[in-house]
Amino acid sequence: MDFLKNNLDMLIFGILGLMSFLMLWVTIERWLYFRRVDLKKFSHPDELNIGLTHNLTLLYSVGANAPYIGLLGTVLGILITFHDLGQGGTADVNTIMLGLALALKATATGLFVAIPAILFYNGLLRKADVLTAIWRKEHGHEAL
C-alpha cells in the first residue's frame, strides 16, 4: 500500500501525460497529412479510407480511455484515504476532505485529456469525410 500511496500520482499522471503526447502527435500528424495529401494517387476508395484514417483509432482510444485512467486514479486515491483513516483510528474531517480532493484531481485530468482528444478525432474524421467526398466527385464514384 505504501508503494501505491507514494507513486499513484506519478503513475496516473504519467499515463495521462503519455496519452496527451500521443493525442497531440496524432492530431498534428493527421492535420499536416490532410494539408498535403494528393488525392490523385489513390485509385480505390478503400486505399483512400486507409490513408485518411491512419492513426485515428489511436486518437479515439485516447479520448475513450483517458476518463477511465483518471477514474482509476480517483478510486485508488479514495482507497488509500480510507486505508489511512482505518490505520489511524481517527476520522478527522479535514483529512478525509483533503484525501478525497486530491483523489478527484485524477478524474479531472482524465477528462482534461479526453475532451480535446474526442474533439480532435471528430474534426479529423470530418476532414477525412470531406476529402473522401472530393475524391469521389473527381473519380465519378457515387457516394456510399
Rank of each mutant, 00 (worst) to 15 (best):
V93R: 07
P116S: 09
L16H: 09
L104M: 15
L11T: 10
F42H: 03
L111D: 12
N7D: 08
L98Q: 13
D84K: 11
V113S: 14
I12E: 10
D9C: 04
N7Q: 06
F3E: 12
D38A: 13
G70Q: 04
L102V: 15
N65I: 11
N122G: 03
M10Y: 15
D9V: 02
V37S: 09
N65C: 12
W25N: 12
A114P: 07
K105A: 06
P116V: 13
V26W: 08
F21K: 07
L71A: 07
L111W: 11
A101P: 11
F82C: 10
G14E: 01
A101L: 07
N65Y: 14
F3W: 15
P67Y: 10
A108H: 00
A64I: 03
H83I: 13
G89I: 04
P45A: 11
D46C: 00
V26G: 07
K40C: 12
R126V: 13
P45E: 12
L111N: 10
R30A: 01
G123Y: 00
P116W: 12
N94A: 14
T95R: 11
V93T: 06
D92C: 03
I78Y: 13
A66G: 05
F112T: 14
D38Q: 14
L39R: 01
G70A: 09
Y68M: 10
L56I: 03
N65V: 12
L100R: 05
T90Q: 11
P45W: 05
I12V: 12
G77S: 06
M10D: 15
A91K: 00
